[in-house]
Design a protein around this nucleic acid. Structure first.
Length: 526
RNA sequence: GCGCCUAUAGCUCAAUGGAUAGAGUAAUAGUCUUCGGAACUAUUGAUGAGGGUUCGAUUCCCCCUGGGCGCACCA
């Protein structure tokens, strides 16, 4: 990796400034903020020339080195080197985690997309990755659902669809606003469920079956496969041990009939409610315990919405108290909301994934009506996923139909299109790609060549910042550079055909690798 | 009320304390007898207000304003 070589050289020469990419390409490939010129850098054979200006030592890399690094990308040697970043380290990532009694809205879609991308990024960096779909399949919500089914259900539970369950859930909340007793009834039913009441358990199981079937369909559509789906109910028989641990450490106390844990700088967390039932906080603590005992991870990532930031901090802090000290990180992705307002799941103002996909597919059909259904779907899903991934996870997403379905400019289909365009060129040429350090390059060709080696840095940065957007942005940049080149020069039949094939092939390979990391499909033709 | 997050172009987003604040979109004008126009070129256009730290602040600190989220029996 060029950057590491450069840093090593600087280190040996006792220069401690950070190496960075200049803000504008005309200032070179790398720059160091030194205050005075760094001498002798060109003695290092990866550097072609340096220039000192405005306090920066600007560095241009040797073309042969750029080509050498570019050629490596995607090879076994390259993969092996990349994997050294995380060798011997294990991470668990908790993502997607839809709630059974609630709809799989676009909020969970965000968690699924970002979580999967982070998983892929850590995996390519050599980490042992464990993806866990922490299904919300236990809790008072089932009490609510059971009450709603018994009161307003119009058919047998096993005949209900996910929409029926969703409508009942919404109905419960609107009715509960008028009648507080409903909440008490729901808590009672949940208590029955926790005490293994037969009727409650059967209804719970049926709801689970309906939801799981639906989720499987969605994951299939998205092409997402999560290693484990250890939902909250998996920890039913593991909660007592955690409570015992909390008691041994003397960190849990009774308050108003409930059992809580207190913190110095945060509101308390409730482990057990006054009616004796458990909370999701307690189940999450049992989850940490299980993960520590099963995988002993160095890092546990929660890809959960910002609305649960406090809860996560409580879980992390309690873990420390109990002696579990992996690195914890909560992505705390921003909420999805309308341009001029928020949406409330309790009022049923959700947007269904299927609706989004259908609309995006209609758009894709308008552009390329000849494509088969499979390709149209891949384009539509590419657009939807990219929309989630190309911005900082921390920030709220303004939901905008036009933007979600966008297939131009900064979009998934723009990348897919560029890939297909490269493939088309490659398939039409009879020659072999070839380039050397002496090859003369046009400005646009050189600009493109100077993008390739950054791929590796971007993968690492994305992992460090827990932000797939870093990769997404890089790919857009790369594709744009290729298209700028493509618009200006021909490949086939030109004297420079071989070097241009090289640039085309490398662009395509990196786009494919990068899109795969983001969970987006590529097609040879579209 | 307290805590966390956030404010950049008409709109949606970038910018590890550094060079001329970048893209997309919208608008306008072009490229096109097309190796795939889902493309390319050009023009217009921005750091919420006020202090502070610094040689240098979109970035760090303080304060104000606006937005989002949370704060014990939902998860």
């Amino acid at each position: 990796m060029i950057k590491k070589d450069l840093e090593k050289w600087l280190n040996e020469n006792k220069i401690e400034e950070k190496v960075e990419h200049p803000s504008i390409t005309k200032f070179g490939d790398y720059a160091i903020r030194t205050g005075k010129a760094v001498e002798n850098l060109t003695k290092n054979d990866i550097v072609e020339k340096t220039e000192f200006m405005a306090g920066f030592t600007n560095i241009w890399l040797n073309k042969s080195i750029l080509i050498e690094e570019t050629e490596k990308i995607g090879t076994e040697e390259w993969s092996k080197n990349l994997k050294e970043n995380g060798i011997g380290k294990t991470m668990v990532i908790d993502y997607s985690a839809p709630n059974i009694a609630k709809p799989f809205g676009i909020g969970h879609l965000r968690s699924t997309n970002i979580g999967q991308a982070i998983y892929n990024i850590y995996q390519i960096l050599g980490w042992k990755c464990i993806g866990d779909n922490h299904l919300g399949d236990w809790g008072t919500q089932f009490g609510k659902l059971i009450v709603a089914i018994k009161k307003w259900g119009e058919k047998a539970v096993e005949e209900m669809t996910i929409e029926d369950l969703e409508n009942l859930y919404v109905k419960f909340h609107s009715e509960a606003e008028k009648d507080e007793k409903l909440d008490d009834e729901a808590r009672e039913w949940f208590s029955k469920l926790e005490n293994k009441d037969l009727e409650a358990t059967e209804m719970w199981q049926k709801c689970i079956d309906i939801s799981i079937k639906e989720f499987d369909k969605i994951y299939g559509l998205l092409g997402v496969r999560i290693d484990y789906a250890l939902g909250e109910s998996f920890y039913l028989d593991k909660m007592d041990a955690v409570v015992k641990l909390m008691e041994d450490k003397n960190i849990i106390r009774e308050s108003e009939g409930a059992k809580i844990i207190e913190f110095k700088t945060m509101p308390p967390a409730m482990a057990i409610k006054s009616n004796g039932t458990t909370t999701y906080f307690l189940r999450d603590m049992a989850t940490v315990k299980y993960r520590m005992e099963t995988w002993n991870p160095d890092l546990i990532i929660y890809e959960i919405g910002a609305d649960q930031e406090l809860h996560c901090r409580q879980v992390f802090e309690t873990s420390k108290m109990l002696g579990w000290t992996p690195q914890f990180y909560n992505v705390a992705h921003g909420m999805i909301r309308w341009k001029d307002g928020k949406f409330s799941t309790r009022k049923g103002q959700t947007i269904h994934l299927s609706e989004v996909i259908d609309k995006a597919m209609e758009e894709a059909k308008k552009i390329a009506p000849d494509n088969d259904e499979k390709k149209i779907k891949a384009v539509a899903i590419g657009a939807i996923k990219f929309n989630d991934l190309n911005q900082d996870p921390k920030k709220d997403i303004i939901f905008d139909w036009e933007k979600v379905m966008s297939m131009e400019g900064n979009s998934g289909p723009y990348l897919q299109y560029t890939y297909a365009r490269c493939q088309s060129v490659l398939s039409k040429s009879q020659k072999n790609a070839g380039i050397s350090g002496e090859t003369k390059l046009e400005l646009e060709e050189e600009n493109l060549l100077r993008e390739f080696y950054k791929f590796e840095e971007k993968i690492i940065e994305a992992a460090e910042r827990f932000s797939p957007a870093v990769v997404a942005e890089y790919l857009i940049n790369l594709a744009r550079k290729y298209n700028e080149f493509y618009a200006k020069f021909r490949v086939i039949g030109e004297e420079a055909e071989e070097q241009r094939l090289f640039l085309t092939e490398r662009t395509a390979s990196i786009l494919k690798l990068g899109l795969t990391l983001l969970g987006i499909e590529t097609m040879e033709k579209m």
